[in-house]
Simulated assay, not measured.
Amino acid sequence: MRGLTIGKLADAAGVHLETVRYYERIGLMAEPGRTAGGYRIYGAEHARRLSFIRRGRELGFGIEDIRALLALAEPGHRSCADVKALTMTHLDDVRTKISDLRRLEVILTKTVDQCSGGETPTCPVLDMLSDG
């Protein structure tokens, strides 16, 4: 995987081209070398790092958590205990969101069940939103 253009790198990692540029701007991805014509040229290490970031984002990790995970993945910095702690915090957040979504589902289901769906001037969904 030598000499990838930004488009090929993005395709290989399954992200948009602008995502690669964004990760470079915020320092998540190292600046690549450039061709004589000024085009970015990426290596295999960029592809591995970008795939790592994409997988982390798919799992819902925030940018700063991914930055921390990348640092912990560096040789000499590996600490399974630190990775576990960070991941457990994220898992707690995911579980809280799931719980919140379940409560929301119950509220919306009850409200929708009260709605006739007809042309009446009253609507339980709108009433619920107005009562907020």
Rank of each mutant, 00 (worst) to 15 (best):
A47P: 01
A73C: 02
M128I: 03
I98H: 00
K8A: 14
M88S: 12
T5G: 12
T89N: 14
H46T: 03
P121S: 02
Y42E: 02
A12D: 14
G117E: 11
L69A: 01
D113Q: 12
E18A: 07
T35K: 08
A44P: 01
S79G: 06
A44S: 08
L4W: 10
A73F: 01
G37I: 07
H77T: 15
G27S: 10
T122K: 05
M29Y: 05
L28T: 08
M88C: 12
L129Y: 09
M128C: 02
P121Y: 00
V112G: 00
H90P: 11
R78G: 12
L129K: 00
R2L: 14
E45T: 14
G33C: 06
A13T: 04
T96H: 11
D127Q: 07
R34F: 06
R2T: 15
G37N: 15
H16M: 06
R21E: 03
H16F: 07
L9H: 06
V94D: 04
D131G: 07
E24H: 12
I53G: 03
T35L: 09
L72M: 04
S99C: 12
D131W: 05
R49T: 15
T111D: 00
K8I: 09
L70F: 06
L126N: 03
G37L: 10
G7E: 13
S79N: 09
T35Q: 08
V112H: 00
R67T: 06
S130D: 13
